[in-house]
Design a protein around this nucleic acid. Sequence first.
DNA 1: CACAATAATGGCACTCAGGGTCAAAATGGA
DNA 2: TCCATTTTGACCCTGAGTGCCATTATTGTG
Lengths: 183, 183
Amino acid sequence: MTSHAEIERVAFRLFAEKGFVGTTLDDIAQAAGIGRRTLLRYYRSKNDIPWGQFDDTLDEFRNTLHTFDDRPLHEAVHLAVIEFNRFPAEAMAEHRVRMRLILTTPELQAHSVLRYADWRQVIAEYVAERTGSDPSALLPQTASQVALSLSMAGYGEWLSNDDTELSTVLEQALRTLHGYLEV
Amino acid sequence: MTSHAEIERVAFRLFAEKGFVGTTLDDIAQAAGIGRRTLLRYYRSKNDIPWGQFDDTLDEFRNTLHTFDDRPLHEAVHLAVIEFNRFPAEAMAEHRVRMRLILTTPELQAHSVLRYADWRQVIAEYVAERTGSDPSALLPQTASQVALSLSMAGYGEWLSNDDTELSTVLEQALRTLHGYLEV
DNA sequence: CACAATAATGGCACTCAGGGTCAAAATGGA
DNA sequence: TCCATTTTGACCCTGAGTGCCATTATTGTG
């Protein structure tokens, strides 16, 4: 019996050994004891393997946003982003490995915008709903783009300091933006 | 004699006819009267073809930034971004086609982060220089990420309204961010 | 003008990602 | 146990991208 968890365990081991590019789908399939064709049914592409079940978390993200309906809009988004990036302590080590791979491998960096497009859409829809506008309008799009850019800046900082907290750097990124825009 | 301009003219015609994905490198090479191998020496990849000589514009961008050394930091970046996106009136139609292709084709959307990485780096280095910090520090990274996110939001708006000015929407995007963060 | 050095070209063969098709195998009721 | 429905993986194909190398410009020099 094969599972996503098992495949990812095997894949990450190979990525660590031979690098993402240096690992072929055949390598992963063989190491996982399944056919290459089957592997590509579990994941839409090689680039999607490191993302695991990311899409499944978006529903929860949507709910989290509505948790903050009573807060000012920008604050609601900010708090929800922080909440989205909260993981149990024992999962942080794995999350670091995963995100370091994604954010340092050019192929995966590129692919990430496609995965984050849905994430941004969740924010855009929330902002649109609260402002009575269309998700494609300038405010929802700007808010979601900026939310992503702050997350990226935060993650970069987080990955370069092993002893920082994700929630802390995301907070710092927002404060940094405030300082940058006002001074 | 083949030139980048000639190749791109041929390529964009084919992209318009058969779509980006539906056009093969063989199609382009054949239509341009060159070998596929040669085409891949002119452009690092199929994804790079729509970008033309983008990298060459970065030196000018760097200079433009220093034009605004006497302005507040965030203003200097903002003005330079607008200046970077100024094109002669007769070039705007082509620029629209180019950017619409890039921003609506998933493969090219993904690839764009790799191309924009160098653009962001120019901003990060400028901000680092003016604040006496490292380009990889949080402020330079945040500033460059946000500058890109505002540009993306602006371009989205620009592409959806044929009669808007690029400089206008970029201005609007920044004002929208201010409004979003303060209200 | 001729000739040598250097650069550009494109043909060939190869690896790898990804997708379509289909028969075999596993699964899960009735 | 038998039938129906997924799941699997083997096979084959296309297309991007790379290394290698012989051929063909191009350019500089006498």
